[in-house]
Each structure stands twice: as structure tokens, then as C-alpha cells.
């Protein structure tokens, strides 16, 4: 499937930010499930190019805006050809998968998360265990925007019993690691003509011997297929964040995100434009 993506992030600062730095993880990689036909990132209209690609396969750029910045827009747009690999992506990045057993503040397993892991451990084989874990996560959480925020940990979300894709994913990777399965957080885009998302989506990847990295979307209870575009990964949401910035004390920041994912006709429009 050919998907066209436009991902705009607009920041406004009051008073204007001085010496603003942004780290961008906004460069969709080629994987077994996606080929990148076009991809460009710009900041304030200027193109931004990656400085490096890390061992997890994520390209990063660091941009410094030295002039006082009242408003700036970061735009990533591209055309991606996707394929259905049933979520199986094989090898992505050079790092040993075992590194992704590392826990973080946001993904620390508590007693309740360990209990989920124990329940899934009854299944035969890691793949079945991961599917079960994904189902258990979805059972334990209601999808409810506003119940949690960006700093909510996996354990807190599970205790609250609701959250958004970030929380579902945190719970799933925390439990997967507790099971001894390397897992990571993935940010990307989802094409859903019925209910178009205006933001990025998040899901988990687990490393399963013999298959490599396999995606699991605990919100939709599927393995990401041709309607998904993978953007970047990390140990948790904060690490995988497509944009991270510095801000001086005393400055108010406002952020607005707009994501559009379309198939077919959008791409023509873009070619005409």
C-alpha cells in the first residue's frame, strides 16, 4: 500500500525562545515492512538532515535555532510503500536485542505487571506469549484519552485501568521485559480511513528468536501490517519521542501536532501541488 504522510508539529514560545535546540527522530527507516519512496524533514522551512543513525536503527538530527524564536514548525512528509509482513520485521539496527531488556522509569514492572507476565507465561512459545500479553494488556486497560499524561508510568496506568496508546505500549513492553523478552517502544503512523488519527500512534516491538523484531499493537490487538508506518523506536515514549527540545526557564511552550495519513488520492494531490 502506498501511504502519504504529513506530520506537522508547531511550537509557540512566550516570550520568544532563545537558543532553542531540538532533537529530531523523524526519519522513517526502510524495513521489511516498508520502503521509503520520499521523505523530507524541514524546520522553519529549512531542510533538516540526520546527523547519525544509532545502533537501534533510528536516525537523529539536532537543530539549533540561535535567533529568538516565537514560533517554529517542524514538518516531516513522505511517501512510503508498505507491505503486510504480519508484523515480522526481522533485524532492525545493529544493537544486540538483549539490550532492550533494560527497564526505564516509565516501564518499570511492579507486582501487577509481573502478574500479567506470569499469566502470559502459560502459553506455549514466545510468540503466543506476546499475543496473550497484548490481549491481557487490552483487557486491563480502557482506551480513554485524558486519564493519563506523558509522565504516567506503566505501573500507574495499569493501576488507573485506562490510558492511551502510550500507556498500552508501556504496559506491554514492561510486561514483556519481565517475561525476559526484549521489547521496545515504537512511534509511527496508522492509516485508518474510518477514524483518521490526527496524531502519531505507538505500539510495541518484541524480539523473538528466529523471527527478529515483531510488532504488536495492544490498542487494536493486531500485529502492524500495511496500514502502519514505523517512524522511530526507543526504550520508552520519552526516548522514542520524535521531537525533544530544550527550553529555558520562564518560557511558556505551546505545541500543536497535526498528522495526516492517506492512501491513493492524497498522493496525487501532492504530486499536483
Amino acid at each position: 500500500m502506498r501511504l502519504t504522510i504529513e506530520h506537522r508539529t508547531r511550537y509557540a514560545y512566550e516570550p520568544p525562545a532563545l537558543n532553542l535546540h531540538l532533537r529530531l527522530k523523524l526519519f522513517a527507516p526502510a524495513t521489511a515492512g516498508q520502503s521509503i519512496r520520499e521523505w523530507e524533514v524541514s524546520i522553519g522551512g529549512e531542510p533538516a538532515r540526520p546527523m547519525l543513525t544509532d545502533a537501534f536503527g533510528d536516525a537523529e538530527a539536532v537543530i539549533a535555532l540561535r535567533k529568538a524564536t516565537e514560533e517554529v514548525e517542524v514538518v516531516a512528509r513522505g511517501v512510503v510503500e508498505t507491505a503486510d509482513t504480519a508484523g515480522v520485521l526481522g533485524r532492525i539496527g545493529l544493537a544486540r536485542p538483549e539490550v532492550s531488556l533494560r527497564t526505564t522509569e516509565l516501564t518499570r514492572a511492579d507486582e501487577a505487571i509481573e502478574a500479567l507476565a506470569r499469566e502470559a507465561a502459560d502459553e506455549e512459545g514466545l510468540l503466543a506469549q506476546m499475543h496473550r500479553l497484548s490481549a491481557l494488556t487490552a483487557e486491563a486497560l480502557d482506551y480513554r484519552p485524558g486519564a493519563t499524561d506523558a509522565d504516567t508510568t506503566a505501573a500507574q496506568a495499569l493501576a488507573i485501568g485506562s490510558g492511551v496508546c502510550q500507556d498500552f505500549t508501556h504496559v506491554l513492553i514492561a510486561a514483556a521485559r519481565a517475561l525476559g523478552v526484549p521489547a521496545r517502544y515504537v512511534v509511527g503512523y496508522l492509516h485508518d480511513p474510518e477514524a483518521p488519527l490526527s496524531e502519531t500512534h505507538a505500539w510495541a516491538e518484541a524480539h523473538i528468536a528466529g523471527l527478529g523484531w515483531v510488532g504488536f499493537d495492544p490498542v487494536h490487538q493486531v500485529c502492524p501490517a500495511e496500514t502502519y508506518v514505523r517512524l522511530a523506536s526507543g526504550f520508552d515514549a520519552a526516548d522514542a519521542a520524535p521531537i525533544r527540545g530544550t527550553l529555558s526557564a520562564g518560557h511558556e511552550e505551546e505545541m500543536e501536532v497535526a498528522v495526516r495519513v492517506s492512501a491513493g488520492q492524497m498522493q496525487q494531490q501532492q504530486q499536483q501541488g
Binding site: H21, R23, M51, L52, D54, V62, A238, R244, G245
Partner: peptide, 22 residues
Amino acid sequence: DPLAFRPESVLGVPGLFDVYRA
């Protein structure tokens, strides 16, 4: 580097860690 390690840190040189790795 507050971009790489501690976003709340006031110390550090933003982007230094990426420049080092590159």
C-alpha cells in the same frame, strides 16, 4: 547534554552527545 539525558537539566551542552557519536 539535556537533549540526550536529562531534559530537566540546566547544565549541559544541547546536542553534544549526538556530535560526539557522529
